Simulated scan of single mutants.
Amino acid sequence: MASPAIPLYAPAHNHEGEGKMSEESSGRPFAGRTALITGSGQNIGRAIALAFARGGANVVINGHRNKEAIDRVAAEAEALGVRALPILADVADPGAVQAMVDKAAETFGGVDIAVSNVSVRLHTKFLDISIEEWQRIINSNLSASFYLARAVLPLMQARNWGRIIHISGKDGFAVIPNRAHNVTCKAGVFALSKAIAVEFGQFGITANTIAPGVIDTTRDWTQYPHFANGYGERIEEIPVRRIGHVDDIADACVYLVNAGFVTGQLLHVNGGDGLF
């Protein structure tokens, strides 16, 4: 006899500490959870935040400079029937990250899901990278993930449940020239995920990494000379013959939150553009 179908967002099992969802909330499996997504005022971060909101999670919307943007995303989330907290914070500042997490815990009682999504991508030849530029990119693209994990892990331990997701990139695994600092960071967040997964798995906490391929986002095209003609030529190189959508990354995040037996892993979401 065929197994019963499992709803898209419903966990297959309700292990101790992994499922505080009642039958009434089965259509919103993240009800009672809180998700914090850095860099969620636009693009991939916004899509991730709204995906969790649709699943019933309260969301913390983070940006660095644009208060109007995070307020708009917070309003979109609240229109889905959840609570949203927009916070301006520079994730490269460990004190600001801790203050943001403290505010989230004060407002919602904790942080169950943390997605580290902020990234600054500069196109600079290796010998032209200054010490200041190197430190800036390392701090925003790699250290920021450590700052966030360090702040949320005690809260997750207290609940014996947690999900940490790092958004990496293809350039951490198929190296793009003239991006040594970003390449280092994108590979580094995967190593960080594995370290967290091994140390904190006993507390019901998973840590994973998503490496997006070519995703249609608003970006500074001056830093993407390899897209001199836009996305056009690249489409023919991607097996699924399309550019990725921000919702493709959001769907992967939803999967990893539900997948309690998946940890320390790297998920390439790239339409087959690079089979690793």
Rank of each mutant, 00 (worst) to 15 (best):
F190R: 10
R83P: 01
P94M: 06
Q42L: 13
R163K: 12
V254D: 01
A79I: 00
A49I: 11
G19E: 05
L80Y: 10
Y231M: 04
N208C: 00
D220H: 10
I176N: 14
A96S: 08
P29N: 14
D71Q: 13
P4N: 07
R163F: 01
S25W: 12
E233W: 10
L85S: 11
T107P: 01
H13P: 00
I87V: 15
A5T: 12
I6F: 05
E199H: 07
S3D: 13
A105I: 04
A197H: 09
I87D: 02
T184Y: 09
L267R: 04
C253A: 14
N139M: 01
E106C: 00
P154I: 01
K194L: 06
V152C: 00
A10P: 00
C253R: 02
I210Q: 06
A47V: 11
G204F: 11
Q135A: 12
G232R: 10
K125P: 05
G201P: 01
L127N: 12
A92K: 09
C253L: 07
I131K: 14
S40C: 04
V246F: 02
N160E: 13
L192N: 08
K170C: 09
A104Q: 00
K67A: 15
I138M: 14
V111F: 09
F52W: 08
K194Y: 06
D112S: 10
L122K: 14
P94L: 06
G56I: 01
N178Q: 13
F146A: 01
I129R: 07
F146N: 04
L50M: 08
E236M: 06
Q98M: 09
P94R: 03
K170N: 13
F126V: 11
D251K: 11
I6C: 14
G55T: 04
D248A: 09
I243A: 00
N62K: 02
V254E: 08
F261N: 10
I196R: 01
G272S: 00
A53R: 00
E68S: 15
C185G: 02
G27I: 02
I249E: 09
V111Q: 03
I6Q: 10
A174W: 14
D273W: 15
K186E: 00
V262E: 00
E236H: 10
G204M: 08
I113W: 07
A77R: 02
A5P: 05
S119A: 15
T218C: 06
D93I: 06
V111G: 02
I44S: 04
L127I: 12
E133N: 12
S193D: 08
G19M: 11
G55V: 01
G81D: 03
E18C: 09
D247Y: 05
A84E: 04
N160C: 08
A84C: 05
G272F: 11
D71C: 05
S22T: 15
G244P: 03
L122V: 09
S40L: 06
